[in-house]
Design a binder for these strands. Structure first.
Lengths: 233, 233
DNA sequence: GTCTATATACGGATAGAC
DNA sequence: GTCTATCCGTATATAGAC
């Protein structure tokens, strides 16, 4: 799948995501008119990601946020209980979107090689479409309260587990050579994350997400298919 | 080289590093007695890394830092002009240490395959010995002022260039197959960085740095030596 | 060389007008 | 549904005692 096809198939526009945020937080939000909420949530989300990803979430003051979002301080607080709540909303929405899209893309019937390629492409496409969200979640994880942080660590291990399961399945069918599936999945994730963590570098070099995906798939396939030389963990 | 050998060969203890920080900032530090300075710098550095890496540099207040370091608020300011200066000192010291160690480990006379392995191992060993510094520099880069941030980006590209040069040299001697050296170096860096960014994960699984290094070398070697199948960038 | 006490500014959050 | 005005805690930084 190319990135263009991905975008046609999945709606991850800010509006669609904010509509889901509203649905998930209906009782915490004091404003009643749905269109107003979605419109303002979109402004809040955009401003939060923009400021946080440049300076860090801690460094973003509610005053700065209100100015950037075009709402007053008092107005902001109609949409969440406190600053921390903004971060939690964003993280929860990202997690739910990721798991939904993966569930729709990966089918058990696919052979392991196809699954591997699909999972890599899907992750890259998602993180390209929701770059700000991914970067935010990655960088701000450590500032979460304990419960949320454990959720984020679980999410990390969860995505990893998708790859671990594919690798194990491929080894059983002898599509892949036996190699530690946890270490392999770990480096695959590292390569996928580099795409949104170092976006400036790839933009500067005019690498598209499809080019990066092709390279990543080639790299991973080469490794999992090549007979092991000897000592690995 | 194993990690034990690395540690015997290079002194990257906090004391040695703080002695270098002192040398580099002699006129900015108001205290004269060298031993006092080194001892207190060590406490400040340790406390800064500890708190920042848990909560973020922004979230670390000077009060918290003074309590953790065992110095008073006023006392702290004898060692730097402001909070921002602490971050700059740490980043500069890390950069200087990294470039010194790499210069000592990599020799032009080595064949490309050996250089590649050495560079991977050196990076992992360094980041293992100075885990807190690497993590700090990575996570707090975006909060730096413009000049420092550009320095950090240059440092990132610099380390990458080490690998790019090795890969190009190896392709010329036909040790390695032709593949985009920039993309290849990029994913190698991503894998190396994962070691210190996800330390908790590897600790939980009892993976040692030597095991990770062996795996990373195997992975990279497999890719650069395997003839290309076809389409890559 | 280090501490206590304080100046000054800015943070998150809310009450109540419109 | 949104804004203005304000509360109060905490931030960085410094002055001056010891």
């Amino acid at each position: 799948m190319t990135y263009e096809e991905f975008k046609r198939r999945f709606d991850v526009s800010r509006e669609a995501l904010c509509r889901e945020i509203l649905a998930a937080n209906r009782d915490a939000i004091r404003i009643k008119k749905e269109n107003t909420v979605v419109k303002n949530l979109a402004k809040i989300v955009e401003a939060t990601l923009k400021i946080s990803n440049r300076l860090g979430f801690q460094a973003m003051s509610m005053r700065t946020l209100s100015r950037e979002a075009g709402l007053s301080m008092g107005g902001l607080y109609a949409y969440f209980a406190g600053k921390q709540e903004i971060m939690d909303m964003l993280r929860r929405q990202l997690e739910s979107t990721v798991s939904r899209v993966f569930a729709q893309c990966l089918k058990d019937a696919m052979p392991p090689g196809v699954q591997l390629q699909t999972a890599i492409e899907t992750h890259l496409h998602l993180s390209e479409a929701m770059r700000g969200w991914f970067y935010f979640a990655y960088m701000e994880t450590k500032q979460m309260n304990r419960r949320e942080r454990e959720g984020a660590m679980a999410a990390e291990l969860n995505t990893e587990k998708i790859f671990v399961d594919i690798l194990k399945a491929g080894q059983q069918t002898a599509d892949f050579c036996p190699r530690d599936p946890y270490l392999t999945a770990g480096v695959i994730k590292a390569v996928l994350q580099d795409w949104y963590l170092k976006r400036w570098k790839y933009a500067r070099r005019n690498i598209t997400v499809d080019q990066y995906a092709a390279f990543a798939v080639d790299w991973v396939e080469t490794f999992v298919r090549e007979p092991c030389s000897g000592a690995d963990t």
